[in-house]
Write a protein that binds this DNA or RNA. Structure first.
Lengths: 369, 369
DNA sequence: CTGAAAGCGCTAACAG
DNA sequence: CTGTTAGCGCTTTCAG
């Protein structure tokens, strides 16, 4: 029986390509169960045996099979971070927070992007259910349609049927009854944008545009913050307003959208823009420059997210800081069923950060050249 | 035996909290193996039985246990992306590439950050070995010490002993014999920085500083590119040169480092800076502004990475574009053992992208105010 | 303290 | 085509 087809592995025996507990037990001259106990530091083993078994295991390069463990109930838990595409600092920061908590709990993190297809989302979730993930963090904005929430509810059920939790992360607390029992970790997007808009109003702007409206949860909340601030200032806006331009959060769309807003007759052109994301704001900077507009004299801008690059721009970008990492940590606790102090639908506060991108519109009027 | 302690799950029976194949088989009135076959679309099952079993499975909300499958040899492969901290666009882009390839191969992606501790790296790798990951991508710069490579070699052996591959990603091809058989996916950092430095030299700069030298693989290669370009221009630099400043790639360190370089008597101050990363370049922009330096008139800057924000800066940042996503895809193929066309130590080309951050130093001389 | 034995849930020969 | 029988590698009673 001298077969030699195992991969380029260590000394050990094993048929499929790994040293098993059985091998260790045999080599140590004990039963499998004793070996198991010894390695698990189970107190019901004599110190001598334990030491010996552990030594043997080390010599054989034994590595327990964690997959099998999970089968028995023991084993490493696993949490998945599912999002459209994990580009972008915001996600990275959230993921960082999730990872921190998971590591402390000895759990592992799956990362999955759904690449925008709703089909992708389903496929990913099903795969995760099969792998008996203990929890799924569905991260990022969701489309706010009944159909979509129905789908989410199905995911919830599917995951529940294998004992896994679903947590929505970064979406506003949802009103849709279909999903009202699914935990959501949100942050106060409305107030954030409201504060940002107010800063522009306070500087004297009236002609304030909004970049980013669309039928997604996040965008809608942010739009609402803008609208409220405007209304309080006696200005009304609605989604059809020419000052409200829809765009996705990707370069290809941002440029044209910004152009539509800025390439106008000075009289029609906004003196300030509220951007749904910093990335959009960055795009606005580029477009404004291309059109020869001076920032902030000719155009004031506020963003949302507080990206690292904001302070390197000229002028530095006023924005809304979101505690993404903390959100990630909280979501991780929720999904692992760890005790939390803000319930299942926390809404984290955000903070408006004024910087140099806001100027009074008067300056525009007085500019001479 | 009417026990009812299972979680809030679907109808199915099951003791631990999940519908098993056995349940499906019983409900469908067939043997377990038939049920297994039916669900696997094994042709050796009558169409009728198959349909019936599949229907039953659906009604019971049955979800195969993928963990168990992996045990048998079938089952989803899993690849891990291990890095210090997954902030930063570069990593995100690489991860995106990895994810794309993995999805196509139906494999799953683990994400792990080691948080900077070498201990963390070990812990993560051991955990991955236990979970029988099929491969590990160790991403990012490594410290170039013998001790470290010894450690890496150990990881390689550990992973090999469970049939998993290790691929180093984003490091230069390594000369250290300890790890020469480990695949590495690199990109031509040296040429990139060389081109960037040449652009500054061509513009007439002589007093060119370098920001970012340190004893890590990446930084060293980049430093080397800088040194070469300088030498070809008849200028010599060495790591001790006051024009060479070391810094990690984090805000806290970048600011002070930039200050050390720029807060000098004009005669001692460089007229241009080669930055190891765009993030550092961004920091230089900030610091330069604080000191009242005009960009690019008083200071030319080049970076490395080609981050999205670069074009929103004023002036737009000249940089080196790296095909991170492609690198990720290649690394994923390598780690999965898929056929590749550039061998086990590819070095991807990079591309210098000139933008507005470079001006002739002459302008500095002629500035009057 | 230790060993034998019974699973965990599924796949894969092996016989009908 | 379908059922029986072995495992996969480990944990955990249950007896010594």
């Amino acid at each position: 029986m001298a077969h030699d087809e195992r991969p380029r592995t260590a000394p050990g025996p094993a048929s499929r390509g790994g040293v098993t507990l059985k091998d260790v037990a045999q080599a140590a001259g004990v039963s499998i169960s004793t070996a198991s106990r010894a390695l698990a530091n189970n107190p019901h083993v004599s110190k001598a045996t334990r030491r010996h078994v552990q030594q043997t295991a080390r010599e054989l390069n034994y590595v327990v099979n964690g997959l099998v463990r999970s089968m028995t109930g023991t084993g490493t838990r696993t949490v998945a971070f599912v999002t459209d595409a994990f580009l972008g600092e915001a996600f990275a920061r959230m993921a960082q927070g999730v990872d921190m908590t998971l590591r402390r709990e000895n759990a592992m993190l799956f990362l999955n992007s759904t690449q925008g297809f709703p089909e992708g989302q389903r496929i990913v979730i099903e795969q995760l259910a099969r792998q008996r993930t203990s929890g799924v963090l569905l991260v990022g904005t969701q489309s706010d349609t009944d159909e979509h929430w129905t789908r989410i509810a199905r995911y919830h059920d599917l995951l529940a049927s294998v004992g896994a939790r679903l947590v929505l992360c970064g979406v506003p607390a949802i009103s849709n009854p279909k999903v009202s029992d699914i935990p959501t970790v949100s942050y106060d997007q409305r107030s954030g944008v409201q504060a940002a808009t107010n800063a522009l109003l306070d500087a004297g702007h009236r002609s304030i545009a909004f970049l980013g409206y669309s039928r997604r949860t996040t965008a809608m909340e942010r739009f609402d913050g803008y609208r409220r601030a405007m209304r309080q200032a006696g200005l009304t806006v609605d989604p059809d307003d020419p000052m409200v331009i829809a765009t996705g959060n990707v370069e290809e769309q941002i440029g044209p959208a910004a152009l539509r807003l800025l390439d106008r007759d000075p009289a029609e052109r906004p003196t300030a823009i509220v951007c749904t994301t910093d990335r959009m704001a960055h795009g606005v900077y580029r477009t404004a420059r291309q059109l020869g507009l001076r920032l902030p004299e000719d155009l004031s801008v506020v963003g949302f997210d507080d990206l690292a690059a904001d302070e390197s721009l000229t002028p530095t970008l006023s924005t809304v800081n979101v505690p993404y990492e903390e959100i990630g940590r909280y979501a991780a606790r929720l999904v692992l069923g760890l005790p939390v102090d803000r319930g299942e639908h926390p809404v984290f506060p955000v903070r408006f950060i004024p910087r140099r991108s806001i100027a009074s519109p008067d300056r525009t009027a007085t500019r001479s050249y």
